[in-house]
């Protein structure tokens, strides 16, 4: 089997498995999985920047929220329907990540983390400041009637699940292709050794900027999809906590692997969901698990698999 067919088999297999799960999982778990797939898109967007380009951002909630509010405000205030609303979300995320990226990329390392963090904080406060439109921390509901795409009601469990799956699949396959493309390989080269990539004649700044914009737009797509599928937009999603989540998902699942973000998001969700059934102190358990993972599976779950079992894992 060539590397390309093996890749294709893996990714299509994952998607087939996800599609098949709809028919076997009980309602509660398929509902969870729909949500996880939307959030995994966020994680995949984050992974492109962090896992493949080596840039650690602490401000991705800004992009997630830009997508979310782009869609929600267009639909709520502008009375747009879902499709142009989704596009508005993507454009909002694209513009915000373009500006934030152009500025933040003047810095590196920890300063990059802090600048992205502060941009996101400013974004969060901006949401509060325009409370007349955004209803600040409280947020607002996108009416159930408006949440349909091309005549398909997105509020039924099945439609929601497959809408989430289509978005997830598109991003999943797109990124799997991207990281094997010359563009993706250049990003990896930058991650491994930026000075060398520069010496080889690559305009690394332009590559990194494109990575930020792509990563931010994918994150925004996730935010817009969340608002559309679950009917709510609120400032909570712009807080620091929501910048840290994709970092955790990606690190748990395995940074720089295509499958890692999904695994990380599933793992984290069920860790909290199961632990909260056992004890109120589920964050304690989550904390202990995080520490243990860093001690014993530092490459994340998929990364550890790659190291130990399947060295070909993309």
């Amino acid at each position: 089997m060539t590397a390309a067919t093996r890749d294709a088999a893996l990714h299509l297999g994952v998607l087939t498995l996800l599609a098949g799960l709809w028919f076997v999982l009980p309602t509660y778990h398929s509902g969870n999985l729909a949500r996880i797939m939307v959030l995994a898109v966020y994680a995949m967007g984050y992974n492109l920047l962090f896992g493949y380009t080596g840039l650690l951002s602490l401000g991705h909630a800004l992009f997630f929220a830009a997508g979310m509010y782009g869609l929600a405000i267009a639909m709520q205030q502008g009375g747009w329907s879902a499709a142009p609303g989704f596009l508005a979300g993507l454009i909002a995320a694209l513009v915000v990540s373009g500006v934030a990226g152009a500025l933040a990329l003047r810095t590196t390392g920890v300063a990059f983390m802090i600048v992205t963090l502060m941009f996101a904080q400013a974004g969060y406060l901006t949401v509060l400041y325009f409370g007349a439109i955004t209803r600040g921390d409280e947020g607002f509901v996108i009416p159930q009637a408006a949440r349909s795409l091309a005549g398909i009601d997105l509020t039924t469990p099945a439609n929601r699940y497959f809408a989430a799956l289509i978005l997830f699949g598109a991003v999943f396959l797109g990124l799997a292709w991207l990281v094997r493309s010359p563009f993706g390989r250049t990003l990896i080269a930058i991650r491994e050794n930026e000075a060398r990539a520069k010496m080889l004649g690559y305009d690394t700044h332009a590559y990194k900027l494109r990575a930020v914009i792509l990563s931010g737009t994918i994150s925004g797509a996730s935010g817009a999809a969340y608002a559309l599928l679950f009917g709510y937009a609120g400032a909570t999603f712009a807080t620091v906590q929501y910048s840290i989540f994709p970092l955790l998902w990606v690190l748990l699942g395995g940074a720089g692997t295509t499958i890692g973000p999904l695994i990380g998001a599933i793992f984290m969700f069920y860790l909290i969901d199961l632990a909260s059934g056992v004890t109120d102190a589920y964050m304690l358990i989550a904390g202990v698990v995080l520490v243990l993972l860093t001690l014993f599976a530092p490459q994340g779950l998929a990364g550890t698999l790659r190291n130990r079992v399947w060295p070909w894992l993309p």
């Binding site: 009980p26 509660y28 921390d137 947020g139 609120g234 909570t236």
Partner: peptide
């Protein structure tokens, strides 16, 4: 869907209520 509750109840903070209410419907 899991614990088969007849109704749901509770909570104070508005953002949690507003974020949850669409799902209730």
């Amino acid at each position: 869907n899991q614990s088969n509750c007849d109704v749901a109840f509770g909570t104070l903070f508005s953002h949690v209520v507003i974020g949850s209410a669409p799902r209730a419907a």
